[in-house]
């Protein structure tokens, strides 16, 4: 009895979480503009998307910024994580608090403070400012996913490599990097997803003419309902779902390898 009650409650909560998303997806295939009545299956809205220059442009920007910011943030963040890992306690603590600052600070503050900076240094708001902003909020997440891997490392691995004749650079390339690779890849995927997902910071740091999907969706949604948004949502939802499943399988894959 109690078991059924739990099951019932869980189902209700999942319904609450997923029903809106599912309905959103279903109505993206609706032939008419109606959100209440089903008037037949159609890919109409997806074709509309393909013809919408503005949306295609936003998609291109979104992807470029996500890829570039993820890669650059991963480079800077991984190097930083290695450096931070080797620091003395007090210094480490100070820098870690600095790292947490953009994570805990409200997005809106991060966004507008960057906007002020860009305006202040006369950087035209657009693609570059967006990219810089995305790198900035991505770096801490890369650091936070690489650091635990470094912590798990036997601290003598690096010394062992030196002991066997590897120069410091070789030791990093052949030992440390392969060891922390899962953390680095997770960090990069995380950064990519976060960049794809971001709205608030992009909203403040972009200028006229340059838009991401999120921004386009917001400006469309503000004006009311538009089934094209349903189609975009569906694509984005499936992309994020796929990415998350890859990350998850990667993690559990590592796990089972360890347990063997």
């Amino acid at each position: 009895m109690k078991h059924y009650l739990k099951k019932f409650y869980a189902i209700l909560i999942y319904l609450f979480l997923y029903a809106p998303i599912l309905i959103l997806i279903i109505f993206s295939f609706n032939a008419s503009k109606s959100r209440g009545n089903w008037s037949g299956f159609s890919l109409h809205w997806y074709f509309e998307l393909l013809q919408d220059r503005q949306i295609l442009n936003a998609l291109y920007n979104t992807m470029m910024i996500a890829v570039l910011s993820a890669v650059i943030a991963t480079l800077i963040g991984t190097a930083a994580a290695i450096g931070i890992h080797n620091m003395k306690k007090l210094k480490k603590k100070v820098i870690m608090n600095l790292t947490y600052l953009p994570v805990v600070n409200p997005d809106i503050v991060t966004g507008l403070s960057l906007m002020i900076l860009f305006v202040f240094i006369n950087l035209r708001l657009g693609f570059l400012s967006l990219l810089l902003a995305h790198i900035t909020f991505n770096i801490p997440y890369v650091i936070l996913s690489v650091l635990p891997k470094l912590k798990q490392l036997d601290k003598h691995l690096y010394e062992a490599a030196l002991d066997l004749g590897a120069t410091p650079l070789e030791a990093y390339r052949k030992v440390i990097l392969p060891e922390i690779m899962p953390g680095v890849v997770t960090g990069m995927l995380l950064a990519f997803t976060l960049s794809l997902d971001d709205f608030v910071i992009s909203f403040f740091t972009t200028g006229s003419g340059v838009s991401t999907l999120s921004i386009t969706v917001y400006s469309m949604a503000r004006r009311g309902i538009n089934p094209k948004i349903n189609a975009i949502s569906t694509i984005l939802f499936l992309t994020v779902l796929l990415l998350l499943m890859i990350v998850n399988i990667r993690m559990s894959g590592n796990h089972s390898k360890k347990e063997r």
């Binding site: 036997d154 003598h156 691995l157 010394e159 062992a160 490599a161 030196l162 002991d163 066997l164 004749g165 590897a166 120069t167 410091p168 052949k174 030992v175 392969p178 060891e179």
Partner: peptide, 30 residues
């Protein structure tokens, strides 16, 4: 002189074997 130029080798306390390499690759590392 840095460790990688010394004619000295070390067996570490918790072995410090490279987990991403197999036995052959570990031994062949140097």
């Amino acid at each position: 002189v840095p460790p990688y130029k010394r004619r000295v080798n070390t067996v570490f306390q918790k072995y410090a074997l490279f987990p991403h390499l197999n036995v052959f690759e570990n031994i062949a590392f140097g």
